[in-house]
């Protein structure tokens, strides 16, 4: 059993989750707070990875971040090498691919917070940031948890983008799902089974955490 793949997978999932929570929170708040066309376009763009084949996104990232585009050339100038086939490139791909899994639960959570509570807090002298910190964030705890768990588990199980963008470099981009694929290709079914069990275990534990810690506030309490 390749422990490097397990650690790499956990590192990739944790990094992606941390980046996405920081990025998705303001994005989800913006989407949840208006009905403008711009917001609906942003919402559709965010949801795109849900319906796109992962290989499509992987291909675009591979080409986009490579020396054929001005963005790719700029990145190579700055960091000295292309992002493809590196851990940083993998993180970038995972962040884009898991974006809807982070944003959608937060949009749903923020939209469910009673507007009257927000209005009341504002009239009591709370600035928009304080309203978010003291009212919206605590009442959206379940949404934050769902967002984190779904992003983490989705990244753990990612295959197409990782294969296209990361290649299959041991210790750098070979995650558990890629290792599992390799072992099946080599007819090493015992090792493949162990990798599969790790993936099942990690995903189950994350989902158990999500369902065990449901919100203590029911909608009927929001009076």
């Amino acid at each position: 059993m390749d422990s490097t793949s397990i650690l790499l997978t956990l590192r990739l999932a944790a990094t992606t989750t941390a980046i996405l929570l920081a990025f998705a929170t303001p994005l989800a708040w913006w989407i949840a707070n208006g009905r403008s066309v711009t917001r609906r376009i942003a919402q559709a763009a965010v949801a795109l990875p849900l319906v796109l084949p992962p290989t499509v996104l992987g291909l675009y990232l591979l080409v986009g971040l490579g020396p054929l585009t001005s963005l790719g050339r700029a990145i190579i100038r700055i960091i000295g090498h292309p992002l493809a086939f590196t851990f940083t490139g993998l993180v970038m791909g995972s962040v884009l691919f898991s974006l809807p899994f982070a944003v959608q639960p937060l949009v749903a959570g923020f939209s469910a917070v009673d507007r009257n509570l927000i209005d009341t807090a504002r009239v009591l002298g709370a600035s928009p940031l304080t309203v978010f910190r003291r009212i919206i964030a605590p009442l959206s705890r379940a949404a934050f948890l769902a967002s984190a768990v779904l992003t983490f588990t989705h990244t753990v199980g990612e295959f197409g983008v990782v294969l296209m963008l990361g290649g299959d470099i041991p210790g750098v981009t070979r995650t558990l799902s890629i290792a599992l694929y390799d072992q099946v290709q080599e007819a090493n079914y015992a090792a493949a089974n162990r990798a599969a069990l790790w993936l099942v275990g990690l995903s189950f534990l994350a989902l158990l955490l999500l369902y065990a810690r449901s919100s203590p506030y029911q909608e009927s309490d929001l009076v």
Binding site: D114, N116, T120, V123, L139, Y217, D221, V223
Partner: peptide, 13 residues
């Protein structure tokens, strides 16, 4: 300007 609204809107948490 402070308001005690018709719906008490207490913060449930």
């Amino acid at each position: 300007i402070r308001l005690a609204p018709q719906n008490p809107s207490l913060f449930p948490h």
